[in-house]
Amino acid sequence: MSKFLAASIGRKFLMSITGLFLVAFIAVHLTLNLLLIFDDSGELFNLGANFMATNPAIKIMEPLLGLGFLIHILWSFYLEFQNWKARPVKYDKKNMSGASSWASRNMLVLGALVMVFLIIHIINFFWVIKFDPHTMSTIVIGGEEMEDTYTLVADLFKGSVAYCFFYILGGLLLGFHLSHGFWSAFQTLGLNNKYWMKRWQAIGYAYAIIVAIGFAAIPLYFLVKF
């Protein structure tokens, strides 16, 4: 098995499986986060956040998600390092823009930038909710007392234009990463042929655009409205 995961297609298999797992997570994450901009009282989002925080299934998924990120990131560096070694002498003059997309050639750069975003994003919210919850205010919705996650998020965006732009950028970077990553994952898994090529690419672009615009819309909303 370790031989398989070190082989070229095995490396890519792990990238695509973890990548698709992250794609599924991002879809859930975005759906829930959009509640932020559809209810200014914060009630809907707080209910959603509380449901996720207390749901046993999510408790199981949380470490799996961390593992997924970890494997995806570690393997991406391993994979790119192997590929980099395959061309010890570089070309003097390259003209690659006509033959492949910029995103496809810069997946590691895009991924690494997403990773930087991710670290700051975790410090901003996940860390506070998980390890410093006493610093958060609480709110009572429907007779149940819960942490006021809405205020935690809203205050960050209301209080800092810089953070708003940072989060908009994060969404766009992820969108670019997925504009190639989505269909690439299906190609890697062998789930592609001459009919599905165009379809996966179209679905991938649509997903990437929804992710980019969706995530960017949240800070943008706070930036414009407050």
Partner: peptide, 24 residues
């Protein structure tokens, strides 16, 4: 040789237009 990251450059530059669906 390196591993494939599906950039698709090979198909474009191949003189015989071999399709990357073969890679799938």
């Amino acid at each position: 040789f390196g591993g494939c990251t599906n950039t698709g450059a090979c198909e474009v530059e191949c003189p015989k237009s071999i399709s990357i669906t073969n890679i799938a």
